[in-house]
Nucleic acid binder design. Structure first.
Lengths: 185, 185
DNA sequence: AGGCTCATGTAACCGGTTACATGATTAT
DNA sequence: ATAATCATGTAACCGGTTACATGAGCCT
């Protein structure tokens, strides 16, 4: 359901093509939402059919033709309605296959569990670095765009940073407990 | 994809019916995975078709008949294969509609953003309480079941607790930044 | 009388993933 | 030469959600 609003939200900044929307997703929303191009093209078609977007065919000579989508008034209303709507249960539901595995780790031996925790920590350490880079990009941007927007982009990047930090601390705590338990477990 | 392994994992503890598997999901896996009963019944049918489960029809007189599913050897192999498999990209991808909204909050005024952050904090404060209750239940259980299993159940509960704690701290930080920005923004 | 628990599902739909398909231009 | 970029999609499939449907027994 949220891909729809992600697309409307980006198009609220300005008109765009499916191709560029995919790039926008990959570069700025991918921490908390991923989208395949096939899904983006499908969704754009139905948003246009429903009157939330208008489309213009742009013929190009040196490159493939393209379809430029623009938010209609109805589309903007739809987007703002979603944005203002109250938080609901679904906004808090997490799905995490890694934690599902952890839940069943009683079937593995502790060495294997420790190795997996260390791999997990390593991945989040790399993510920390990339969030710092993202934070830098946003600061560069915020000089150019509405700083009121950039403020919230920073909040989401900060969330990602803190999230990975927390995963690392949790993993270290768990590793510690496993190694402690080895002696008198 | 992970519902499959969640079901195999619980059935690895012992045979069960769709009805009871739904309860097991709701009571212990729901923090990181939710499942509807319609989906559970569908999945059980295909797991049996694929030879990962066997099924026994149990006729009852005072209650509706039931189907008791049991893990086959193939099913146990399939489960352990998944459990031992290396972490992949998909194990780290987050989907969070709340953060999607935050990303676009530049379209709202700050008071509204603050109110939503406070609601968010409030919800996670309630979640913190429920995780403490969960941790208690696990400790009660761990006297009865294999403590090596309970250890990992605690890890996932601890993750949930820390996650909500982190959300609260992030929200407070964000509220602070918004209120600070009011004066000289 | 009314609501909860036990116990099963089907049907319609929506959202998301993977693979396939094309083809010119531009940069290394 | 070759790989990347630009730009569009389709098709098949899988996974997940919502609503509908039934019906006995037990508790208040």
């Amino acid at each position: 359901m949220s891909l729809k609003f992600g697309l409307l939200g980006i198009l609220n900044y300005g008109s765009s093509t499916g191709y560029d929307l995919k790039k926008a997703f990959d570069s700025s929303l991918s921490f908390f939402w991923q989208a395949h191009k096939s899904q983006i093209y499908k969704e754009l078609t139905s948003l246009e059919r429903d009157g939330f977007l208008s489309v213009e065919n742009v013929v190009q000579l040196d490159r493939p033709n393209k379809k430029v989508y623009s938010l209609t008034d109805r589309g903007r209303e739809e987007f703002l309605g979603w944005l203002k709507s109250d938080l609901s249960e679904g906004d808090f539901q997490v799905r995490d296959t890694f934690l599902m595995k952890v839940f069943f780790w009683g079937e593995l031996d502790r060495e294997e569990a420790c190795r997996k925790l260390e791999a997990y920590r390593g991945i989040h350490e790399k993510k920390l670095e990339s969030y710092q880079a993202v934070a830098g990009h946003i600061r560069d941007y915020s000089a150019l765009v509405d700083p009121e927007k950039a403020r919230y982009w920073e909040f989401t990047a900060r969330f990602g940073y803190r999230y990975s930090e927390n995963c690392i601390e949790w993993a270290e705590e768990a590793i510690h407990l496993l190694k402690e338990g080895e002696n008198h477990g």
